[in-house]
Design a protein around this nucleic acid. Structure first.
Length: 325
DNA sequence: ATGGTTTTTACTGCGTC
DNA sequence: GACGCGGTAAAAACCAT
């Protein structure tokens, strides 16, 4: 943590306490009983008289910040809500946590007897939290999903979906005999397709530790067992990514979409690999828009052979010709 | 396991800069 | 002559049966 961060925080805190002092001093300055000085005990939420100990106010509201802001943007986005629940944490972030400090709710130290009790509770709570093999399984798998999703640049919602799929697979006892990594990878692959931001099997495999055969096998398996509805990948969903990887204009991108549409009308889409079609459409569109892209460029970003691009793009142009003619 | 389809690999010829 | 492009044949991969 840098110096500036520390200063920002302490300033924040002292400002808040100053504000609190001034606000309350306008109310009652002295103790109504003995006229002594009043003190605010923030830890207990009380206002007490320093001389006679009279509690003037109980359960006072702490107007200080309940968040810590380390920079300007954090201060701007300060929020009074708690952490959102998330499916990305194995317990949705909601499980019980027993603090490590031996303090009670008021911050007082615990008696040794209490301390021992809390120690036992901590131990058991921790055991219940992670003992279940399923939970531990999930913990690891979700970590993997997160890692792979980041590597592939997939958005949050895809990770969430992948997590849900994985959770379902786990609940249906689909795991025995399959690797955690494999199912996690397959879940992510399926999630990406469902979300309309597909990554090819190869791309997914590249960031995973499993081989392609295991991935396809596992993927098919969980799709079948969970009755996941995964429509065949739409070539169009690959277009934006390829187009941007090749620095093409929006115009070319739109053109590529139209080519795919034309081919769809013509019934040229079925049976062909969506990636190949998308690659060919992007290539053809670039030509039509006079934007310089070579076949090998496209084949590289799409991981598709040049031959396939040639074959597809011939067909695409024909289909387009048929429709426009 | 098998056969049909699609994709890939490897190679060759053509035109252009 | 290197490069981009187009084509072909055979091998490999994929998929449903």
């Amino acid at each position: 943590m840098s110096d500036t961060e520390i200063r920002t925080y302490t300033e924040e805190a002292s400002e808040a306490s100053k504000r609190r002092e001034t606000e309350e001093s306008t109310d009652e300055v002295v103790c109504p009983e003995c006229g002594g000085r009043l003190e605010t005990d923030t830890e207990h939420g009380e206002t007490v008289c320093a001389d006679c100990g009279l509690v003037v106010e109980e359960d006072s509201i702490d107007r200080g910040p309940e968040w810590r802001a380390f920079d300007a943007s954090e201060r701007d986005s300060k929020s009074r809500v708690g952490a959102p629940t998330t499916k990305m944490m194995h317990d949705k972030g909601l499980s019980t946590n027993i603090g490590w400090q031996d303090k009670d709710a008021y911050g007082k130290s615990l008696s040794s007897r209490q301390r021992q009790k809390m120690q036992r509770l901590r131990t058991w709570n921790e055991r219940f939290r992670t003992r279940d093999s399923k939970e531990r399984n999930l913990k690891q798998a979700l970590g993997e999903i997160d890692r792979m999703a980041s590597a592939l640049g997939l958005p949050e919602n895809v990770r969430e979906t992948a997590s849900v799929i994985y959770r379902r697979a786990l609940n249906e006892d689909l795991l025995p005999g399959r690797s955690i990594e494999g199912v996690a990878t397959a879940s992510l692959y399926a999630a990406a397709r469902q979300a309309g931001v597909p990554r090819s099997l190869d791309e997914v495999r590249n960031v995973s530790r499993i081989d392609k055969m295991e991935l396809t096998r596992t993927y098919r398996y969980i799709v079948r067992e969970l009755n996941l509805e995964v429509a065949p990948a739409d070539p169009e969903s690959y277009i934006p990514r390829f187009a941007s990887d090749l620095d093409l204009s929006d115009e070319a991108e739109g053109r590529a979409r139209k080519l795919i549409e034309a081919a769809r009308e013509d019934g040229q889409l079925s049976g062909k690999s969506p990636v190949g079609l998308a690659a060919a459409a992007v290539y053809a569109a670039a030509l039509l828009c006079n934007e310089k892209v070579t076949q090998s460029d496209v084949s590289e970003v799409a991981n598709i052979s040049e031959v396939t691009i040639r074959n597809r793009y011939k067909e695409l142009l024909e289909a387009e010709g048929v429709v426009t003619a």
